[in-house]
Amino acid sequence: MVPAVVREVGRSVVAIAAVLGGIAVLLSGLNRVPVVLQPEVSHRFKDFSGVREAERELKTKIWIPAYFPDYLSWPPALVRVEKGEPPVVVLGILRNPQHDLSLLLLQSLGKGDWQALSVPAVTSVVETRQVALKKSRAILSRTMDGSGQIWTRLQWESASRRFLLIGQSSTEELLRIAGSMGGADQ
C-alpha cells in the first residue's frame, strides 16, 4: 500500500513535468513561427554596421590586425556574426580603389568545430603547407573558386579562438597581417 503523501508527490512530479514539457513545446513552436512566416530572413547570421556594434552585441572584443596594407580599405565593408556554436565573426575588407572583396577575416569565439557560411566555395586546392606564424604553426593553402580566381587561405589558432584569413594578397602579406593580430592570449 503506497502512502498518500508518496502518491501526492508522484502526482505533483507528473503534473510539473507535464506543465514544463507543454510550455517547452509551445515555446519551440513559437520560435519556429518567424522562420515559417519569413523564410527569406536568415536567422543564422546577423550583419552589423561596424565592429563596435558587433562587439557590443557579442560582449567580447573582436581581434583585428594592427597591420593593413595601404591598398585595403578600412573599416570593413562587411561585419557579420554567424550564430553558430561557437559564433563566428566575419570581417569583409575591400580593395582600394576597385572596391572588390579582397580579404575575409573569420574568427571563431571559441575552439569548437565550425563551418562558416560566408566563405567562398572552393573548387580545387592548388597547394597546402605548414608555415610558421609567430611562435606557432599555421596551415597555408592556395585554392581556386568557381570563377577561376585564386584565394590564399591561412588557418591558425590561439588559446581561445580559431582564425581563417582568406585573401588575394601575397602569402607574405597575409602572414604579416595574421602576425599582427592582437588578442589577450596571443
Binding site: K83, E85, P86
Partner: peptide, 13 residues
C-alpha cells in the same frame, strides 16, 4: 543572450 546562446541553447529566441 549572446548570438551563440540564442542560436544554440535557447528554446525561444
Amino acid at each position: 543572450g549572446s548570438p551563440a546562446f540564442r542560436a544554440g541553447e535557447a528554446l525561444f529566441d
